[in-house]
């Protein structure tokens, strides 16, 4: 049985660290207050998930996360009858749980799910705010604190994998990018625990690699890989070794491009 990963996080005492680069916190809060569903766009590793965690904690709501994939079905989201012994028992899916309890339901990488699956969120995402449980002939009205958040990365999905216009048009959108240099610097020092000087070196390296165009690298190094590099430096690795392991290796497999990137790393970071 395909069951999507879903985690119910009770509201945290302290909000996970997130440093806004624009007005995303205000937009999120306004959308929450006005019962509008939200769509987060942005490249991988720019902090979409962290942002949602931060906002859930800040607003005092618990967070239910669903990682979407191609085989996810509407029943995986809504719930289904399961056989238990000789009986059939209804079990709520993550979306239904969130609707009932007033949690924030976060559908991560929602384009990975097939378009016919995402259609179940339509009545939830407009003025009706209702979830229809077809099997139980039940119509659930969402808890006033319920909020739906989707995320996706418009970069690497092909044309065939795109959100339906009818789904998109129901959302409020926030576009996240990699934070500007000085903010990313703060994030590295706070989250990665490296010194100011080391953070400066890493940021300069990232700024340079992000200049490379798509003909050489399909994706560039993200804030997440920068933080991982900082963690490795913390663990005692030299900056060059840490950057090679955490930034370059995940970036591409082409040996020649790797060699060129190693040269970039050696120019920017001390041994």
């Amino acid at each position: 049985m395909q069951v999507a990963f879903s985690a119910d996080n009770a509201p945290a005492d302290e909000a996970p660290y997130y440093l806004p680069s624009g007005n995303e916190v205000e937009v999120f809060t306004a959308a929450y207050r006005q019962h509008l569903p939200l769509m987060l766009k942005g490249p991988t590793g720019c902090g979409k998930t962290r942002f949602v965690e931060h906002m859930a904690a800040r607003l005092g709501r618990s967070l239910i996360t669903v990682a979407c994939h191609e085989d996810i079905t509407a029943a995986d989201l809504v719930g289904r009858y399961l056989l238990q012994g000789g009986d059939t028992v209804w079990v709520d899916g993550p979306l239904t749980r969130a609707v009932r309890s007033g949690a924030i339901c976060y559908l991560d990488e929602v384009v990975e799910a097939r378009a016919d699956t995402t259609v179940v969120i339509h009545p939830l995402a407009d003025h009706r705010r209702e979830l229809i449980l077809e099997r139980r002939a039940e119509q659930l009205t969402a808890h006033p604190y319920f909020m739906l958040v989707l995320s996706y990365n418009p970069g690497y999905q092909s044309v065939l994998k795109d959100l339906k216009q009818s789904t998109r048009q129901r959302m409020v959108g926030i576009e996240l990018g990699y934070p500007p240099a000085e903010r990313e610097h703060q994030i590295l020092v706070r989250e990665g625990g490296v010194s100011e000087a080391q953070a400066t070196d890493l940021i300069k390296l990232a700024q340079a690699i992000r200049q490379l165009d798509a003909s050489l690298l399909p994706e560039v190094c993200s804030t997440r890989t920068l933080v991982s590099t900082a963690h490795l430096i913390q663990a005692g690795l030299s900056p060059r070794v840490a950057a090679t392991a955490a930034m370059l290796q995940p970036l591409c497999d082409d040996a020649v491009v790797q060699q060129g990137l190693r040269e970039v790393v050696e120019t920017y970071l001390p041994a």
Binding site: A208, Q211, D213
Partner: peptide
Amino acid sequence: HHPLRLLAAAVVGRPV
């Protein structure tokens, strides 16, 4: 042993 083309592209902002 030191291919520098990527370094140049990264600094200039276009392939060089």
